[in-house]
Design a protein around this nucleic acid. Structure first.
Lengths: 247, 247
DNA sequence: AACAAACGAGAGCAGTGCTCTTGACTTTCG
DNA sequence: CGAAAGTCAAGAGCACTGCTCTCGTTTGTT
């Protein structure tokens, strides 16, 4: 079909046959409908039969495209991680390269905004594990770590630029066992930021997700906190100080 | 039956008939078996039929005691809240009355220990909501707020005793809308602690649960952090500084 | 003793995940 | 070109779920 046939013959990427194209499209449709059902009814209520109905096909047919229910959950998991990762990347990239505080807050706001917009996906990614389902690490680890990788990237860049207050880093001692873990991460990710700042970065990470989880999962109660935007913004302000970012 | 029949007629508390006793016992058995199933298979996989089997009874019989599956979930929810609340209370009470930092850390450790021991219950209480299930606020609010009530109690007592560093409280401004929410809570709970400390207390609360959730829900990855005890302890040390508790 | 409430068992309905077989269609290759 | 190989949708079927209803039996009260 393509004029450069000999070159294509060497590469693994053959031009997709109509059948392959149709198959890819069908899988994409299944994921799309699955996302709708996920948003409407939640992860545990996700039903392959219902997806098949919406697809206009009998239930057994979808098993041609998706191995089982867990496989669909994995596809939705990766889809969610990447959507969140894309929005976080876009939000951070929109900030000036040297405004590390702005980048941190933009990242946190992107997480919160996405979580509130897609609570079911957020629950699938960061909530209680679905019983009997174990995410395949080899497929989910990379997209699943995009946010934290980006966050420590911001902290590391801030440290290298001298924008990370070194004063806070000596307040609490780091036990040796924890220092080992941090050293391994530093080596693996090529970081410069010292132990104390890394540890505080981890705390900031968990705190952001704790705050978002409380809000999305309804732990704040019905109307205990009406000013949730202000509460989150305030928490970011405090966390910014925790990790030593100037305001 | 009872000799003091006229008095008993006025009071609502009659001595329980054998049938009532048996009924109460059966419900307790159902909750006990339900807890076992919850721990083994998770909340979404909780099955009334399986509970009935373990109870040695046909499935429709349990509907005599429990209205439906959601009712059983509510019972397990209240059960979990109270067990956690009891352990938190015991841990805090075991500390000296003026060691507020120790009380805070004891509370956090009690939460973490219980969560790791009962991950399914923790997921039911603080994880993603079960699809289609809405907890009845009138039955779950009181037990569900025991931990946070106790935590702000510690902070408030520390403030009244002058053990809360007032310096940290002015670093970040509190927007008016948030101050309103905080004022309402202060009035309702009869607190003395100022806005900034309350807001930081809320952050500490969400941060503790964020850290515990990450650990219980497996967000830390398989072996990124081996020294989890040390990590949590370090985080508590930082959070202690965030809220202004002396070390 | 008579009656009403409570109870356990069983059948049954509609839904689920998943497997297997059947028949039709498409692509590829001799 | 035609046959073989591969792919697909459909349907039946199994075991499970939540839940309802009916039917006798047991229990407690009058």
């Amino acid at each position: 079909m393509t004029p450069a046939e000999p070159a294509a013959a060497l590469s693994k990427e053959k031009p997709p046959t109509p059948r392959e194209r149709a198959r890819t499209q069908t899988i994409a449709d299944i994921v799309r409908i699955g996302r709708e059902h996920l948003a409407l009814h939640g992860a545990a209520a996700l039903s392959l039969r219902a997806v098949a109905r919406d697809l206009g096909v009998v239930s057994s047919a979808v098993y041609r495209y998706v191995e089982n229910r867990d496989e669909l959950l994995t596809l939705l998991l990766i889809d969610g991680y990447n959507e969140l990762g894309d929005e976080v990347d876009a939000a951070v990239d929109a900030m000036p390269a040297h405004d590390f505080t702005g980048q941190f807050k933009a990242l946190a706001h992107a997480v919160r905004t996405w979580a509130i917009r897609e609570p079911a996906s957020y629950a699938l990614l960061f909530g209680s594990p679905v019983p009997g389902y174990q995410a395949p690490g080899e497929r989910t680890t990379v997209p699943g770590t995009r946010v934290i990788v980006r966050l420590v990237g911001v902290f590391d860049a801030a440290y290298r630029a001298g924008a990370l207050d070194a004063q806070v880093t000596s307040a609490v001692v780091i036990p040796p066992a924890l220092a080992e873990d941090l050293a391994a991460i530093r080596t693996q990710m090529n970081l410069a930021v010292p132990d104390a700042s890394m540890a505080r970065g981890v705390l900031v990470w968990t705190s952001v997700f704790g705050a978002v989880s409380f809000e999305v999962f309804g732990q704040y109660g019905r109307d205990t906190f009406a000013a949730r935007d202000e509460l989150f913004e305030h928490q970011l302000g405090v966390l910014q100080g925790v990790v030593g970012l100037q305001g």
